[in-house]
Nucleic acid binder design. Structure first.
Length: 293
DNA sequence: AAGCGAACCTGGCTGC
DNA sequence: TGCAGCCAGGTTCGCT
């Protein structure tokens, strides 16, 4: 499901409901997701108060009063639903009003307010972990993680340095979480389209110090930030079934210019090209061969 | 050593 | 209607 904008949307949904709340009970319905849950997972959560909710790239970070951080990754199909027994569910919400449980409701957090927060993940590519707050940046999940694209460090110069000498396609380099962390298949396709850059181009060609490519890395850095910011403001993208925590849908998918638009004409007025799809690094790339060079 | 493809899992859609 | 095949927003492993 989720790239950075979707995870940020989830974070914003959970934040007002969870912050300051004590976790009175945690249901864990299976021993593992993508990885086993950490030892004594429930015991280390129950009784703790949520201090704040953060995000790093595609990871959700829940700061606990125990000085541990609950690290959560949604994989491809993970989602959170907030069930407030005092409030009628919005129509279209994933969980029906009886609050019946789904086969893939793997974790349920019970807050002292009575609210339940359900983690559902059919494919189980997501995971949860606990780590002391101190040293989180150097922990397993984060030690080799790349730049935060919405932070202030994503500049053309950084891209030029990171991509220097790389023979991998630009698409693959942008998907590499150890370089820039948070982009996924959709937003890479969209950013490359807006930047007029071919996904097939060697990443190292953005490092040219002079000539026609000189400004391209700067443009790309700005466009990446623009696309992500717009998507966050739109509440992320709802493909298939991704929903916000209250069951409502993001709407950035209506603004896709190339993603999932194979065969359509390029939205750029004077271009007239046709959007193509091909497989690259094992995943679908959508692009306009005419105006992305 | 970088750069591929495969694997991990389930469900939804398409087409025969 | 049934069923096979393909596809999916991510990450990691293992083989060149």
């Amino acid at each position: 499901m989720p790239e950075l904008p979707e995870v940020e949307t989830v974070r914003r949904g959970l934040e007002p409901v969870m912050t300051g709340q004590r976790l009175v009970r945690v249901e864990q319905n299976r021993p593992d997701l993508r990885f086993p849950f950490p030892p004594c997972f429930r015991e280390r959560l129950e009784g703790q108060t949520v201090l704040s909710l953060g995000r790093r790239a595609k990871y959700l970070l829940v700061d606990l009063s125990s000085d541990e951080v609950l690290i959560m990754h949604l994989g491809m199909s993970g989602r959170f639903t907030i069930i407030d027994p005092l409030q009628k569910q919005k129509p279209g919400a994933f969980h029906h009003e009886t609050g019946g449980t789904d086969l893939h409701d793997h974790v349920i957090f019970h807050l002292e307010s009575g609210v339940r927060i359900i983690y559902n993940d059919p494919r189980r590519f997501g995971f949860m972990d606990l780590h002391p707050r101190r040293g989180l940046e150097t922990s397993l999940h984060f030690k080799s993680m790349g730049l935060e694209p919405l932070g202030n460090k994503l500049e053309g110069d950084r891209i030029r340095t990171l991509f220097e000498g790389k023979k991998a396609p630009l698409k693959a380099a942008l998907l590499d979480q150890s370089l820039i962390a948070g982009l996924g298949n959709i937003y890479v396709c969209e950013a490359l389209y807006r930047a007029g850059l071919s996904p097939k181009r060697r990443a190292g060609t953005l490092s040219a110090a002079r000539g026609a490519m000189k400004e391209k890395a700067d443009v790309l850095a700005e466009i990446i930030r623009d696309v992500l910011t717009e998507a966050v403001e739109a509440g992320g993208s709802s493909l298939r079934d991704f929903a916000q925590t209250d069951g409502s849908l993001g709407y950035f998918q209506h603004r896709f210019r190339v993603y999932d638009r194979e065969g359509e004409t390029c939205p750029k007025k004077s271009c007239g090209g046709v959007i193509k799809r091909f497989v690259q690094s094992g995943r679908s790339t959508f692009y306009c061969p005419k105006c992305q060079k």
